[in-house]
């Protein structure tokens, strides 16, 4: 055995950085979609490594649903400052106020689907021609076939049956005017890889991911945090539990897990032993077997 090989994490890191650099080289106005979740945090740190000692040569874009965890917003602002990068915010509330979208009503109402319109509007207004995201192929069936460079037509739509073949590391970012690309540099990472990387690189993450005490309710097997946007059903009473979050989505639909994991090591052990996928706690994915595929086709993340 010789010394010239990389660990799997180092190889994934090199691959992701290669993809990020291709984006900057091939597109005129790239951007990084930043949700405040761990995947987009990893992406932002990889971007810094890719261009060091220069600054990250593209802005972070946050699609603000107005239903964020306060911890996410606090982290976002800290990180933008830390990386010295420009922030562009697309507001779902603004899309609602302008009549671009209609707010869902009812007990399980969510702004998740509305984000798509705000996202596409933000891309169009800023003339972004490539939007990088932290989606991973291991997350969901529809994502397993996503390309690194994913072509979107002028309506922002994804056509899974007509994707460009992607060979070796030769990425084809050619497009016509009005079209754009979504690019997923950490496509090949799993949830475990992301955690191991955050740990190995000592990257700070929002407090939400660590175990803490929180006022919650239990609905259809999902632990939901109380918030001004969560409408309680008759008979639902908030209780305090020790929980943490595995993903960082909209406050009214992101489920927590009971957990004592208050350090990165404990989280990694918990993820290793977990028998449920991280998206298993997301109410938006439970809206039917092809919920993600349908949302993706219309331009979702």
């Amino acid at each position: 055995m010789n010394q010239y090989y990389l660990s799997h994490l180092k190889e994934l890191e090199s691959e992701a950085i290669y993809v990020i650099r291709e984006v900057v080289a091939q597109f005129e106005r790239p951007a990084l979609l930043f949700s405040g979740g761990k995947d987009s945090i990893v992406l932002a740190y990889l971007s810094r490594k890719a261009f060091y000692p220069a600054r990250i040569p593209f802005p972070l874009v946050h699609i603000d649903t107005g239903h964020n965890f306060p911890e996410t917003m606090e982290y976002r602002d800290w990180m933008v400052n830390e990386l010295g990068v420009r922030l562009v915010v697309g507001s779902v509330q603004e899309s609602i106020d302008k009549g671009r979208v209609k707010e869902e009503t009812g007990i399980n109402a969510s702004r998740n689907a509305l984000q798509t319109v705000t996202l596409l509007d933000t891309i169009e207004q800023n003339k972004f021609d490539a939007a990088m995201g932290g989606a991973r192929r291991d997350e969901e069936k529809a994502r397993a076939k996503e390309r690194f460079f994913s072509h979107r037509d002028e309506f922002g739509q994804w056509d899974p049956k007509n994707q460009r073949p992607e060979l070796w590391n030769l990425f084809n970012g050619r497009k016509n005017i009005g079209e754009h690309f979504r690019v997923f540099p950490i496509s090949n990472w799993t949830e475990m890889d992301v955690w191991q990387y955050l740990f190995a690189e000592n990257i700070p993450i929002p407090k939400l991911y660590y175990s803490h005490k929180r006022e919650v309710i239990l609905r259809d097997g999902t632990i939901l945090s109380t918030s001004p946007w969560l409408k309680l059903k008759p008979g639902e009473t908030p209780t305090e539990m020790t929980v943490r979050f595995r993903t960082c989505g909209d406050m009214p639909i992101t489920g927590a897990v009971e957990s004592d994991a208050d350090t990165m090591e404990k989280i990694i052990n918990e993820v290793a032993a977990s028998r449920k996928t991280e998206r298993g706690t997301r109410a938006d994915d439970k809206r039917g077997e092809t919920a993600m595929e349908d949302r993706k086709k219309s331009g979702y993340f």
Binding site: A144, K161, E293
Partner: peptide
């Protein structure tokens, strides 16, 4: 390992799908 809707409907795999395990 059957991903997209059209594949499930037709019972065939039409594209490259990536899977992960460790």
């Amino acid at each position: 390992t059957d991903g997209l809707r059209s594949e499930r409907e037709q019972g065939i795999t039409i594209d490259v799908a990536y899977r992960y395990f460790a």
